[in-house]
Design a protein around this nucleic acid. Structure first.
Lengths: 193, 193
DNA sequence: AGTGACCTATAAGGTAGATTAAGAAAGAAG
DNA sequence: CTTCTTTCTTAATCTACCTTATAGGTCACT
């Protein structure tokens, strides 16, 4: 069981004791996911919150024309999940799919509630990184309503340079809210200057 | 001091005892804000987290061409603040301005930290509503990358019907990421059908 | 009653980005 | 190696949305 990255992750925010570590180890389940395998599909209720140990996943929405719109990527040490469905227990409108062979750790909702009750410290940990996620996504909204596609692309490269060689331009375009064709012309213009 | 709405707000999430209520009352400060008054300006560090008792405020970014882009509105029982600046203690890039005469309750960062330490219950409360904020803003990102302006406008009216008579179309357009002129033509088209 | 500030509407012309289609290159699979 | 799938590119046409300009309406202030 590949729990160490998760323990390390928690420890950077707030050191855990032996008992807490053991509880974490007990309630998180490891899964190996193949490329193109789904861990959530539209219509399912999101039963798990997911921590990525290795690999890369995307969460996206499919509109009525069948087009995919990437809401989020997740690589090593990131969390991914449809929080809305997880908490409301209503069917999700999203898909989560592995873009590479991945190793993930998952926790069920009832276990996460137990975790918060038994070890209130985790309320703090999860509060802090929910806040960080909120801060990041607020930046993204700001960009979407105030910047051009080219500016957003440059900012994306700046913010996530390690995605550049790892995920295709098709996926990046979908994340930025533009077509791959238009991203291609943006890239051409950038290479000229 | 107009603390009751805040206490009620906390109580709906997790009932408070006498001691907790008194502490809340002690650390939140009430302020009366005039229309057009700022509670945060670009370059300031966000020192407060703000709960709205009465009135209406907006948080926005001003781009290099001087255009305002509304990130968020807040009315009765909503929170508003630049979380990024509040936590990092770096200068904010945002403005928060009252659109109506308002009554707000503010807490300083050091008091909020005290609150979390003395009464860990509040970690849970703040975790829950940070999660809710995150869920909402994720929906908004999804719309921005996958829907037309008309669809976003209709969804906005559907989601926040009470804003319709309360804030101007100029402000709504800025929130949606379009120009007021284009919102006007959208409204014309909608009224035809 | 008059002035100014702000909001809404309308219209012409312009641009960012979408759509469609087609071809070349590079992986992945058999 | 061959076949199939996916990726990236280019180019023409189209559309959603922006820009600039003008004008009428409403409300606050004097």
């Amino acid at each position: 069981m590949n729990i160490k990255p998760l323990i390390d992750y928690f420890n950077t925010l707030l050191p855990l004791n032996e008992e807490e570590e053991q509880f974490i180890e007990k309630i998180f389940k490891e899964r190996q996911i193949k490329r193109r395998q789904f861990i959530l599909q539209e219509g399912d209720v999101a039963k798990y919150n997911t921590f990525v140990v290795e690999g890369c996943l995307k969460m996206y929405y499919v509109d009525d024309k069948g087009k995919e719109h990437n809401l989020q990527f997740a690589i090593e040490n990131w969390w991914i999940g449809d929080l809305g469905s997880f908490h409301s227990e209503k069917p999700s409108k999203l898909y989560i799919e592995a873009m590479e062979r991945s190793i993930i750790l998952q926790i069920r909702k009832e276990d996460q509630l137990q975790l918060f009750i038994k070890y209130p410290k985790f309320n703090r940990i999860f509060r802090v990184f929910t806040e960080n996620a909120l801060i990041n996504i607020q930046e993204r909204i700001l960009q979407n309503i105030s910047s051009t596609a080219e500016e957003r692309y440059l900012d994306f490269l700046d913010r996530y340079p390690y995605f550049f060689q790892r995920i295709s331009n098709v996926q990046i375009a979908s994340y930025l809210g533009i077509t791959p064709e238009f991203l291609s012309t943006i890239r051409k213009n950038l290479s000229k200057s």
